[in-house]
Simulated scan of single mutants.
Amino acid sequence: MELENDDYRTISIASSGDDDTVTKVGDQIPEIIDGLKPWYSVITRIDLYWVCLTIFGLIAFFVLLMVPESESKDPLSFEEALRALLIMAGLVFGVFFAYKYVNAFKKAIFPIGCFALGQGKERYEVQEKIRWGVVVALIISLLSSTVYGLLT
């Protein structure tokens, strides 16, 4: 068995031996591994790169929709071009840093795996309370805003 530092495949298992034994053990191993997965394993599998790229694409799309087409095809002045370039650079850097910080937060709060020994067990219990707080708070806020939006 090999543990890998990969976002999608963290464990590799190779077995050899009698066909009946390998088949029996091969059927039991996925059940054991699935039992070890934390309840938040779906969150750890989300690739925030694609989420941020989609958000950036949607923002760019809506910006293009909001800019009216002008009848004159005059080129932008230097000041206007510089302002547009600075706005785009700010948007790109904003999305990039948001991705980096949200991804670091996700990895800290929702690790792929955790082995809690000694004092690590206390830290794990505190992190578990934080995880429940984050998830429950998010779900309650989404549900309450949806209900409020439907009622008003």
Rank of each mutant, 00 (worst) to 15 (best):
T44Y: 04
L64H: 12
I139W: 09
V135L: 10
I29Y: 04
I130K: 01
L117A: 06
M1G: 10
A116G: 01
T10S: 13
L151A: 14
V134N: 02
T21V: 14
S141H: 06
V136D: 08
L3M: 11
G133S: 03
K106A: 01
L151P: 02
Y40M: 03
Q119P: 08
V95G: 00
G90L: 09
V51E: 03
E71R: 13
K24F: 11
S144R: 07
F56Y: 15
G113Y: 11
K37H: 07
K37M: 08
E125D: 10
L117D: 06
S12Y: 12
C114D: 08
I43E: 01
M66D: 15
W39G: 07
G118T: 00
L3I: 10
R83W: 12
I29T: 09
D18Y: 06
A60W: 09
G17R: 07
E125C: 02
V102K: 01
G90E: 05
F96Q: 05
P30T: 06
T23K: 15
K121F: 07
F61D: 03
R131P: 01
F62D: 04
L142M: 14
E80Q: 15
E69W: 11
L48H: 03
F56Q: 12
I140L: 15
V136K: 11
Y40E: 03
I43K: 03
R9P: 00
P111N: 01
P38Y: 05
S12P: 01
I46T: 02
L58P: 02
P68I: 05
Y124L: 05
Y101F: 13
E128R: 07
L36A: 12
D27F: 10
Y99H: 06
T146C: 11
R45K: 15
I112K: 13
S70F: 11
I13F: 09
E80N: 14
F110A: 00
F61G: 04
S77A: 08
Y40I: 01
D18M: 06
G94S: 05
A60P: 03
V92Y: 13
T44M: 02
L143A: 13
G118Q: 02
F96Y: 15
W39V: 04
T54Y: 06
L36K: 02
K107S: 02
F105S: 04
A84W: 06
L117S: 07
V134W: 01
F78D: 09
F115C: 05
C114A: 10
I13K: 03
L86H: 08
D19K: 14
I29F: 06
S72C: 08
G57T: 11
A108T: 00
Y101S: 05
V95F: 13
M1C: 10
C52M: 15
P75C: 06
P30C: 05
D6M: 07
P68S: 13
A60R: 13
I29G: 03
K73F: 11
F105I: 03
E79L: 15
Y49L: 11
R9S: 10
E80Y: 05
G35I: 01
N103G: 02
Y8H: 12
I59P: 04
V135H: 04
D27K: 15
D47E: 10
G118N: 07
I130Y: 00
T21Q: 14
M88F: 14
A60N: 12
T10H: 09
A116F: 02
L53M: 14
D19E: 15
E122G: 04
L142Q: 09
G94F: 08
G94L: 05
G120W: 00
R131Y: 01
S141N: 07
F97T: 08
K106R: 08
